[in-house]
């Protein structure tokens, strides 16, 4: 009897192997031939159209792609090719809107790895301080979003740009305020300071004189 069990078991093993393997094969077959394909030929094809974007472009490898400057919120933002599919809260590279920045330093203080460097001066005719330096080191940023969360004026925000790959590190350190503008502002602030000092001195002088006459 034992020998029959052994033979039975042998054939059962074969039967089970064949059926279960063919079951797996059937699922693979079904997925491969009858289900919708989800492969997206990302850089060369348009995602929505499913066609090559520009034949002349897709054939030529762009050896040193220009790293588009990030512009302010009100201005036109670089739109990545996946732009239409990215959700609203997408965390891309950080963007900066200079006119609304008040240099409160909250973003710099809330960054765990000191990615952001801000300096500001007080100038007449604008609320808060005016930034003279705003530097983001994209090579260090870990996209945690703590700076965006605390910004009171939404001056720092996430863009939808994610294609930040470059050939050199230094291109990833971005100054958002040009040296010229920075210098102008520093001079303005210096003049304002000097004016204030003169005023103060005059005041003191007049106060002294008045006290002298008394």
């Amino acid at each position: 009897m034992k020998i029959f069990d052994g033979i039975k078991g042998y054939f059962r093993n074969i039967y089970e192997s064949v059926t279960t393997v063919s079951m797996g094969m059937w699922i693979t077959f079904k997925t491969a031939f009858f289900e919708r394909k989800v492969t997206l030929q990302y850089p060369s094809h348009d995602i929505l159209e499913g066609k090559p974007k520009d034949a002349s472009l897709s054939n030529k490898p762009n050896l040193n792609p220009p790293f588009e400057p990030l512009l302010g919120a009100g201005q036109q933002i670089y739109k990545g090719p996946l732009n239409t599919q990215l959700p609203e809260r997408y965390r891309g590279l950080l963007g900066y809107d200079e006119p609304s920045c008040i240099s409160c330093l909250l973003c710099a203080l809330n960054c765990p790895i000191d990615v952001i460097r801000v300096k500001g001066v007080k100038i007449e005719g604008r609320k808060g301080k005016v930034p003279t330096t705003f530097r983001i080191d994209y090579s260090k940023c870990m996209f945690c979003g703590l700076c965006v969360e605390v910004c009171p004026t939404d001056a720092i925000f996430f863009t939808r740009q994610f294609e930040g790959a470059t050939f050199e590190y230094r291109t990833l350190i971005r100054e958002f305020i040009s040296p010229k503008l920075s210098l102008e502002r520093l001079q303005l602030a210096e003049e304002a300071k000097a004016k204030a000092r003169e005023k103060k001195e005059e005041k003191e002088k007049s106060a002294r004189e008045t006290s002298h006459t008394e």
């Binding site: 989800v38 959700p87 809260r89 997408y90 965390r91 996209f143 945690c144 979003g145 703590l146 996430f158």
Partner: peptide, 18 residues
């Protein structure tokens, strides 16, 4: 991938959510 898309919609990130 589907769940990653849901998370991306929820918090903007696919892997390191914070």
């Amino acid at each position: 991938e589907w769940v990653n898309d849901l998370f991306e919609e929820l918090c903007g990130s696919r892997l390191t959510y914070n």
